[in-house]
C-alpha cells in the first residue's frame, strides 16, 4: 500500500517537474519562465520528497527527508524572489520581452 502511494507521489512529482521544464522553454519572457520554474520547482520537489518520505523505512531517514523538504519550502520561493528582483532592477520589464542587459546565452 505505502509502496504504491509512494511511487504515485514520486511519479506525480516527476511529471510536475517535466511540465515546469516545458514551461521554461515555451513561455515568452523572463518573468513567465521564472514563474514556471520556481512554482513547479517547489511543488515537484515537494511531491518527490513526500514520496520518499512515504517510502523511507526508518524514522531517521524520514526526518532527514522532512528537513530537506523544509529547506526547499523556504529557499526555493526566496531564490525566485531574488531572481525576479534582480531582473527588475537591471531593467527587464514584462512588456518588453528580451529587454535588459545582455545575459550571454540567455535570450
Amino acid at each position: 500500500m505505502t509502496e504504491i502511494l509512494g511511487s504515485l507521489l514520486l511519479l506525480l512529482g516527476v511529471l510536475t517537474v517535466l511540465v515546469g521544464g516545458v514551461g521554461l522553454f515555451r513561455f515568452p519572457d523572463f518573468f513567465c519562465r521564472l514563474h514556471s520554474a520556481s512554482i513547479v520547482d517547489t511543488l515537484g520537489a515537494g511531491l518527490v520528497l513526500l514520496g520518499m518520505l512515504v517510502l523511507s523505512g526508518s524514522v531517521v531517514i524520514a526526518f532527514k527527508v522532512a528537513m530537506i523538504g523544509a529547506l526547499i519550502f523556504f529557499l526555493s520561493p526566496m531564490t525566485a524572489h531574488a531572481l525576479a528582483r534582480a531582473a527588475l532592477r537591471s531593467g527587464m520589464h514584462r512588456d518588453k520581452p528580451g529587454s535588459g542587459p545582455s545575459t550571454g546565452g540567455m535570450k
Partner: peptide, 16 residues
C-alpha cells in the same frame, strides 16, 4: 548587491 537590504532574503537567510 541584491542580497543587501532585501528584507525577504535577510529574514530567511539570517535564520538559515
Amino acid at each position: 548587491p541584491e542580497l543587501m537590504g532585501n528584507p525577504v532574503l535577510k529574514t530567511v537567510l539570517l535564520r538559515m
